[in-house]
Design a protein around this nucleic acid. Structure first.
Lengths: 335, 335
DNA sequence: CTGAAAGCGCTTACAG
DNA sequence: CTGAAAGCGCTTACAG
């Protein structure tokens, strides 16, 4: 009728509940024969430990908390999908929380998940250095994804922002472009700063000047990026190429290009997005490989769940330039 | 140091823990003055009830379970975002689970969430009639979204699949099309069957024949849809318009059109998708308004959380034809 | 209107 | 290698 408990398993196996608990938690110092008998009872009764009781007794929930900017975003959508699949494979589940890029909400969401008793956290952090670090708990494993935010004492999994941007801009330069715009969200984000640095370094490496007029770092989202992209691209002396530091900004640029009915402006977007291949021309991107990033993040969390004092590691995954057409356009002639 | 408990609140307020519990659960029969004193103590100590203890005592977790086909899907991404926002607003959190369109996994995911003790469930069901119904729990509120699957004793929130498809196909007919293809996933889905019926009825209403050659219902996903769409559109006597029953199928069609370098085939997709407006021509869609659907689903769940025996309701939200260009193309001439 | 008691199903700390 | 006891922080069922 009702769910079997640890007492039912103990009775069935002929041992005390403590021994069942030992088997459940993989503690050693139990005779193999005993382990087998307990396992058999567990299987026979289809017993599942009660997570609430386990939690109350002093353990953690078999649950991973995932904190991201936004839940309806293709990049984080991939991350959520991978984390959930991996979690379920090991019998855990996933509590999701979004920050909406708000510092206060970021903090309250993390506190809520910790209070719930999640066993570990995967977080796309928010803020800078001490502020970003301070809201992360120390009692449970935390893996930081996407951006480092100056956090040095947690595992971090991110991509080569500087190198990826550098490669993209070198690519545009190699195709003949000299006036290349940079459009990004606020430079509050370390990822945006890194990508901007990669952009600047690529220009300097090629002996080109970094023109502040061609740099826009207030494109909070696609709606904000659209008018800024329009303003950047409308003039007669507009740049011949654009580097968009995120898909959202890229979307704003694409809308502006559509509005201007221009298909001759070269474009590379940092971050792949669905339907990029269906744009006209198809959009060249720097692929962040969110699936690989999420897999790596989960690997690190699983490792730290087993060994909480493992050395802190920073994993920097390579990006991949995906040439689809828009990044290979030559500079247009003067109009 | 450690978190305050109900005993701390009781001591601070000068009442027993039972009275604190009453205030916490909004039970009536407590003097207003007492409520105020307890509330003040709660605020003063920044007390948060321990969910695990509450659960173990016999209550439910302050948690909503959300079960969908896939977590990285624009439609469900919107649903997840809305559900999480609403849940957090009422102090609850969200466990997500994906089924991958697999019946066994669907069942195990639901069982897992129920075992965890979620207070309620929002489910995009899977299967048909008795099979779909059987896996849903009866002890907690369940709201079914997107498709009914013959489930009659649970709240359902879905859209006008038949009418939306009917309107879309009438729209194509009004623009002069006579040979209109239907591309959909398996007819196992009631939504696909409803949309197919809407398609057929629109043709019949216009005195047109329903040609089985123009109906394809084995486009499981975008990769499967692509070759099927290619085969459908390549011949000289190909249909002049396509109705795609989901965004995934629409994506396959768009790829095929790109491959064939054709911009003269009319297209309406059931379900909006990001960047539809950036296609060439921009894609006309039947908008399912996932945000409104998710809001309605949450409203129903919240209602049923308060009143578990409320009458079962089926909510059918209207769709909205969004004309962007691809659905307004005239039939091309013979080649 | 308020409270004392028992119990939910585990875990930790201690014995043997 | 195994177990008896206490306790985690709530809730339900029962009193008064």
């Amino acid at each position: 009728m009702s769910e079997p408990t640890i007492y039912d398993v103990a009775r069935e196996a002929g041992f005390s509940i403590k021994t069942v608990s030992r088997v459940l938690n993989g503690e050693d110092g139990v005779r193999p024969e005993t382990v087998a008998r307990v396992r058999a009872a567990i299987d026979h009764l289809d017993y599942h430990p009660n997570p609430a009781a386990r939690r109350l007794g002093g353990g953690k929930l078999p649950t991973i908390g995932l904190v991201v900017d936004s839940l309806n975003d293709p990049f984080f959508g991939e991350v959520i999908a991978v984390v959930e699949r991996r979690a379920v494979e090991m019998g855990m589940d996933v509590l999701v929380a979004s920050t909406g890029m708000d510092a206060a909400r970021n903090q309250s969401q993390i506190e809520r998940l910790v209070r719930r008793g999640v066993a570990g956290l995967i977080v796309a952090p928010f803020g800078e250095g001490q502020a970003a670090r301070a809201v992360l708990p120390d009692k449970i494993p935390v893996v930081v994804i996407d951006r480092q935010c100056g956090i040095l004492d947690k595992d971090v999994v991110r991509v080569t922002d500087h190198e990826g941007a550098h490669e993209a801009v070198c690519h545009l330069i190699a195709h003949g472009h000299r006036r290349i715009a940079f459009l990004g969200e606020t430079a509050e984000f370390s990822t945006v700063r890194d990508r901007l640095a990669g952009y600047s370094d690529a220009l300097l490496d090629a002996g080109l000047e970094v023109d502040g007029q061609l740099i826009e770092t207030t494109c909070w989202d696609a709606d904000a990026a659209y008018p800024l992209a329009l303003a950047m691209l409308a003039p007669a002396d507009a740049p011949t190429a654009v580097f968009a530091s995120t898909p959202l900004v890229g979307l704003g640029v694409l809308r502006a290009l559509k509005r201007l009915d221009r298909q001759d402006v070269a474009l590379v977007v940092f971050g792949d997005f669905p339907l990029a291949e269906l744009m006209t021309p198809p959009t060249t991107v720097v692929d962040q490989q969110p699936t690989a990033l999420a897999e790596a993040a989960f690997d690190h969390l699983a490792r730290r769940l087993e060994d909480p004092v493992a050395a802190v590691v920073e994993t920097v995954l390579p990006t991949r330039l995906v040439q689809r057409g828009s990044g290979e356009l030559p500079p247009r002639g003067p109009r």
